[in-house]
Nucleic acid binder design. Sequence first.
DNA 1: CATCCACAGGAAGGACGGGGGT
DNA 2: ACCCCCGTCCTTCCTGTGGATG
Length: 423
Amino acid sequence: MLNKPHPEHQDYFPTEVEGRSPHLTNVSTAQRLPADITQIFRKAKEGRVLFADRNALLPEYLPKHLPFRNQQINAVAEVLAPALHGSKPSNLLLYGKTGTGKTAVTKLVLSKLQMQGVPKLTASYINTRIANTEYRVLAEFAATLDVKIPFTGLSIGEVTSRIFSMIRDKGAYAILVLDEIDYLISNYGDDILYEFTRAGERISPGFLAIIGISNNLQFKEALNPRVLTSLGEEELIFPPYTVQELKAILSDRSQIAFRPGVVLQPAVGLCAAMAGSEHGDARRAVDLLRVAGEVAEREGLQRIDEECIRKASQKAEHDRVEEALRSLPVQNKLILLAVSKFKEGTNTGQLYLSYTALTARAGLEALTQRRVSGILAELDLLGLVEAAVISKGRRGRTKRIKLIIDPITLDRVLREDPDLAIN
DNA sequence: CATCCACAGGAAGGACGGGGGT
DNA sequence: ACCCCCGTCCTTCCTGTGGATG
């Protein structure tokens, strides 16, 4: 009975794909296609001139060694170790800017922990920015504990109590990592954490230990004091990598990722410097190196030099902008379009007028100013627009709004949207 | 120095679409 | 069949405010 929906779900996908694929072949010229494909594939087969193992530069790659993080690794290991003999480890909070190795260290320690062969031990890793609602976090956690939870329909309380029963009945030693925990807190408060941190009795003889990972320290302020004392039993701060350290990390990785001699030292230096100038963000540095490799390969170069790094940096930015633009809802696009009409920037009132004019022309309902203001804040966060509150004294308070991306790119991407009749 | 503009941005809630348990 | 839950987008209503101006 319960399985009934499943075959239906599985049918769904193939039919959609089947319905689509002939359509795709029609779009491209059918005659030219085969030749192109073989060329692409052949190039791909022999073309890995530069890369030895590109995976080593992907964000999800977990290196066997994490240089400059021994101290943190040991500290985390020490906190978690009691789990191996069935006593609850302290909860743990990890702080540090992006790309300082928080996630990597945690995952590394967890994987080593699981190798110790304690069957009751379960380690769950959840990024609360990706599983970005309370329910989804719970559902994902449940899934790692083999609790079957529908992806919607149940109340939060119901899911929580099912999870707790599972931990209790199995006597499980559960360790839950909540990455980017500040997102969860700022959007949904600390209710879940409150439940989790005081589950104690309800799940005995099992236990639940929580590792929270956060990019900023201030998120603590939003926590209920009782949650804070429980969650912050242990704290660990990850300092940013220095440029020297980044250089060493990049050298390490490039030895795995590229064939010998492909990456020139100055390129590594520049890459480290560029990523280090923000705050030692290793993830960005590694990503930059990967894109540089792709750039070099596409251009048929034999070496990766500083020029490749610069190009990669531009390309990464360009891709990011295009991707962000494409995934925008229609209304957001219209607002952006309205912003782009003002070369020297504008303010909220003017922008709203211009925007309503655009919606009328496109035959859409205009959103309220409040909503537009909210969307503007989102666009600001995406780095597509710059919006800063300024005061013009008696003439009120408003936002100075300016487009900070290439208007030509904007125009090109927006033209792809069939819902937008741009003339 | 008080005033007052033109908004900012929080809170609450509603409509809607996804889906439960019993 | 019935009543419930959650997330997403919005709207409505609202209070708050920096600083040029009178």
